[in-house]
């Protein structure tokens, strides 16, 4: 089970089983939080519902705090955690495409699957579009390759870049999150729309 050192010697199938159970939990939490509703997701962009921001930001912070404490107590080897390499150009373009798809489709890939599992037809088409995109990217990769690998910066971390310890960075991020949530709730009041999810 990757970097969790207490259970590193488990057989492969147990690792996969744990992953499967965590996956079910993740999907269940997404569904229960209402993330299978594209209204809720798109609400983020219009400011009337900022649940997405709050949930994902909170999840990130909890993971950040949790992993660092586990690492401190020797239960998790953070040096084994894979850090995605950073490609400047590709990250920006990819982010724009992802964002555009998000606001148009009303789902992000994970919530799309969550919505499909409760039988939403728009999610079916959303995921189909995503697969077509993946196929097109793979087929046209030789054309975009030069751009895709440009501006390679390696596995960068924000705390290294800022020159502070990960703990200090976590603290700054938590404070930023609290302020951001507060602003988000103000926005929710300002751009309030009637709750119609249950009507449709």
């Amino acid at each position: 089970m990757g970097p969790l050192s207490i259970i590193s010697s488990l057989p492969e199938w147990v690792n996969l089983l744990i992953g499967f159970i965590i996956g079910i939990g993740f999907g269940f939490a997404l569904e229960q939080a209402g993330f299978s509703s594209s209204r809720k997701l798109a609400g983020m962009f219009y400011g009337y519902d900022t649940t997405v921001l709050k949930v994902f930001f909170t999840a990130a912070i909890v993971a950040l705090v949790g992993s660092q404490f586990l690492s401190f107590f020797g239960l998790l080897d953070l040096s084994l955690v894979y850090v995605n390499p950073y490609f400047i150009g590709a990250s920006i373009v990819g982010g724009v495409i992802m964002g555009a798809g998000f606001v148009m489709g009303g789902f992000c890939p994970g919530t799309g699957i969550s919505a499909l599992s409760i039988g939403k037809i728009d999610a079916l088409f959303f995921l189909f579009g995503g697969l077509v995109g993946a196929f097109l990217f793979a087929e046209t990769y030789p054309i975009v390759e030069k751009f895709a690998i440009s501006g390679f910066k390696g596995p960068m971390k924000v705390d290294d870049w800022m020159g502070v310890s990960p703990g200090v960075f976590t603290f700054i991020l938590i404070v930023a999150a609290v302020i951001l949530f507060w602003i988000a709730e103000l926005a929710e009041k300002k751009f309030n729309r009637p709750e119609i999810t249950s009507d449709i």
Binding site: Q68, S71, S79, S165, P166, G167, T170
Partner: peptide, 9 residues
């Protein structure tokens, strides 16, 4: 607390 703990890396 984390802000005062040694750098885990």
């Amino acid at each position: 607390l984390l802000a005062f703990m040694p750098n885990p890396s």
